[in-house]
Computed example of a mutant assay.
Amino acid sequence: MSTVETGAEAPAPGGGDGTPVLRARGVRVVFTSGFGGGRAAARAVDGVDLDVAPGEIVALVGESGCGKTTLGRVLLGLERPTSGTVEFEGDPLGYSSRDLRAYRRRVQLVQQDPTGSLNPRRTVYESVAEGLRIHGGTTADEAERVTRALSRAGLRPPERFLSRYPYELSGGQRQRVVIAGALVLEPEVLVADEPVASLDASVRGEILRLLLELRDELGLSALIATHDLGLAWNIADRVAVMYLGRVVELGTVEEVLSEPRHPYTRALLSVLPEAGGDPVVLAGEPPDPKKVPGGCRFHPRCPVLASGEAGRAGVADRCRTEDPGVLPGGAGAHTTACHWARAREGTSPGTA
């Protein structure tokens, strides 16, 4: 896989007393639909522990519908979890208007579609200044903060862009305006949902390089939700692989993407152009959060179980009947919610 060269050495994640800047603990989100006896519950997020350390970039990867966007919304305070907690710098997130207003100054969203997220009737200056006005009203240094944010986002000299409208900008420039709108409040954490998915391949590397530079220069932390494992390789310190509402593999980017343990992670990696060999075609239907299987939630589509490898390892029955459990979300050992992977590594559920 290719890498993005930044010319700067990334700081080691973590710091201070080791408290994560952002943490999900036992987060579950259940959506219900229908009426009366026909009501159905969809477990969009079904038990997630995940930490983001100061100065760390965590990539949350998985297929569409696996729960990445919902988990991101929970971490932003846009969605309240059905159970579990979100913590910021060790303190549980409060959901009063006052608490959320203060929180959203420090944890900012970078949206997927810059064209859709920018008002076509507003200039670049007005779009970037909007966050300042929402959170603090018009301030004497507003113009200075807007130009500084644009400059940090790579739009230089910023004066060239202040009076432009979105239609006058390229896709990459529009995404930089969106990032500047987040930076203007000087947050500690960015939560980005597919931040380069709508951009041409030639522009993606520039935006990824920008995010790395912001981490190196400002100490920003980030959670980046993506289906693109190549993006994760280029930008992340750690990778959390999500399937049907739960993290099924977690470790450093080198561990997860160079030595994947979970059959689902292996299948995702097999379709990359650099992978070589035949891609793994998953059997069965795409996952339905209203019908989470018993045992390992991946077992109906698992090629290891279907091929008999799990049986030869003596774990086929466990795959069908025993839930591998929720992985611990902190930095540490490469962990996998897979009975077969644990049997191969000779680890127990508590240590895998």
Rank of each mutant, 00 (worst) to 15 (best):
V4N: 03
E5I: 07
G7C: 08
G7L: 07
E9S: 01
T19F: 11
A24F: 00
V29M: 13
V30S: 06
V30G: 02
F31V: 11
F31L: 08
T32E: 01
T32R: 00
G38R: 05
R39C: 11
R39L: 12
G47R: 05
D51W: 09
V52C: 06
V52F: 00
E56D: 08
I57D: 00
A59E: 11
G62P: 03
G65M: 02
G65D: 03
T70Q: 04
R73T: 14
V74M: 02
L78Y: 01
R80Y: 05
T82G: 01
E87A: 10
F88E: 00
S97M: 06
D99E: 06
Q108T: 07
V110C: 08
D113H: 01
P114W: 14
S117A: 13
L118Y: 04
Y125R: 00
E130N: 07
G131E: 02
H135W: 15
A143Y: 15
R145T: 12
R145D: 08
S151A: 13
G154K: 15
G154R: 15
R156V: 13
R156G: 05
R160H: 15
P166T: 09
P166D: 03
Y167A: 15
Q173S: 05
Q175E: 08
I179K: 12
A182D: 14
L183E: 02
V189W: 09
A192M: 01
E194F: 03
A197G: 04
D200M: 10
L211A: 05
L211H: 01
E213S: 10
D216V: 08
T226L: 06
H227R: 08
D228H: 14
D228F: 14
L229G: 04
G230M: 07
N234I: 09
A236I: 08
R238N: 05
V239N: 15
V239K: 12
M242P: 07
M242H: 09
E249M: 03
G251C: 13
E255A: 04
P260Y: 11
R266V: 14
R266N: 09
L269I: 14
L272R: 08
E274R: 11
A275M: 05
V280K: 15
A283C: 06
P289T: 02
V292N: 07
G295D: 12
F298C: 00
H299K: 09
H299W: 07
P300Q: 06
R301K: 04
C302Y: 04
P303E: 15
L305G: 10
L305V: 10
S307C: 03
G311P: 08
L327A: 03
P328K: 14
G330R: 13
G330F: 01
G332P: 06
G332T: 14
W340L: 00
W340N: 01
A341N: 05
S348R: 11
G350V: 12
A352T: 12
